[in-house]
Amino acid sequence: MNSEISSIVPIGGAIRTPNEFRHHILSVLVENKTGVLARVAQLFSRRGYNIFSLAVAPTDDDRFSRITVVVDVDTAPLEQITKQLHKLVNVIKISEIDPDDAIEYELLLATVAADAATRAQVIELVNLFEGRIVDVGSTKLTVMVTASPSQLDDFEALIVEYGLVELQRTGRVALQKLGKPTTKRKQMKGKVS
């Protein structure tokens, strides 16, 4: 046993898979201003809502950013979460994206133990998931896979067998599938009913 193997952390099994009943995807269009992410994050923490994952980046219009947040509706009704979010002055629009009707992607980076005996198997697995080897060491490989969150869960469950050294996922980004209208939640500010 070399010392590196002992530092392997079996994280794959510990990660909860998104439960479609508990987790909802909100696509939140915000003004691209200092502190907006802090306002959104603080609102979640202050009101006791749980964030499952969060991804933030500018949109094509540099006045706005899009926050894709997967929320745990066990902690509060989705309607209350969106209403509270709408009260933030920097929040422009909130759309709830139905997972059945969305293109969802997430990126995974993982460093995996891969010695001469297992290297070929790891590479094969990565190829099966249409991933890439992005860094090579003598006993380890760093791999990248871009896929839907559930495919990444599968990949994670398989790759963990070889010994994970480190793993990082980005959290999902999502867009509505083409040709079907978005379920717009309160696009008009404050309209209920």
């Binding site: 915000v30 003004e31 933030l88 002055v89 920097n90 929040v91 422009i92 008009m188 500010k189 404050g190 309209k191 209920v192 009913s193």
Partner: peptide
């Protein structure tokens, strides 16, 4: 000009 701040003041007539 605050694009994210538009309070509703008029009640929905049907309601």
């Amino acid at each position: 000009s605050l694009p994210g701040y538009k309070p509703t003041t008029k009640g929905h007539p049907k309601m």
